[in-house]
């Protein structure tokens, strides 16, 4: 699935929820289920500090695909982080760098991307894109 298809799938999943609480139950469940990051990577150099909650992010490239893992100390953030990973992980650096991430807005959680909210999710997305850009640039130089 492309990044766009994955996002559309999430939007379709969320369209079944009738009220906010159901939506949150689902996001929290995602947050609870996934062991997102190897404990060894929960170090300060992987930490994206937000005012409200913290996010750790690790990225590596395997066989031309970028693999992300991440975690957060807040469950709702963690649930959203897992969705972002589902969307972006496993794609090429080029695709990740060019991706338009619209699903967070569409499922009604835009506030999580507000800079004043500062919960680490926005910074994490920026970091992911930066990592992809760095990889992409390196690949171009290697060619």
């Amino acid at each position: 699935m492309t990044i766009k298809e994955k996002q559309d799938e999430i939007i379709a999943d969320f369209s079944f929820f009738e009220d906010w609480m159901d939506k949150y139950e689902y996001i929290i469940q995602l947050g609870k289920e996934l062991p997102l990051i190897d404990e060894a990577f929960k170090t300060d150099d992987k930490l994206i500090k937000g005012c409200q909650s913290r996010v750790w992010m690790h990225a590596e490239e395997k066989e031309g695909k970028v693999l992300f893992s991440a975690d957060s100390d807040a469950l709702i953030t963690k649930g959203l982080v897992s969705l972002v990973i589902k969307v972006l992980s496993g794609h090429s650096a080029e695709d990740i760098h060019n991706a338009d991430i619209y699903f967070i807005d569409q499922i009604g959680l835009k506030s999580h991307l507000s800079p004043t909210r500062s919960n680490g999710l926005l910074s994490m997305l920026k970091q992911m894109k930066l990592y992809a850009l760095a990889l992409k640039t390196r690949h171009q130089l290697e060619k």
Binding site: Q52, A74, T77
Partner: peptide
């Protein structure tokens, strides 16, 4: 065992405005 931010967000969705954080 809960993060203040999560609690604040769930309260918000119930119409209750509190502050969370430092």
């Amino acid at each position: 065992n809960t993060h203040p931010f999560d609690v604040g967000e769930i309260l918000d969705k119930q119409g209750i405005a509190v502050r969370t954080g430092h």
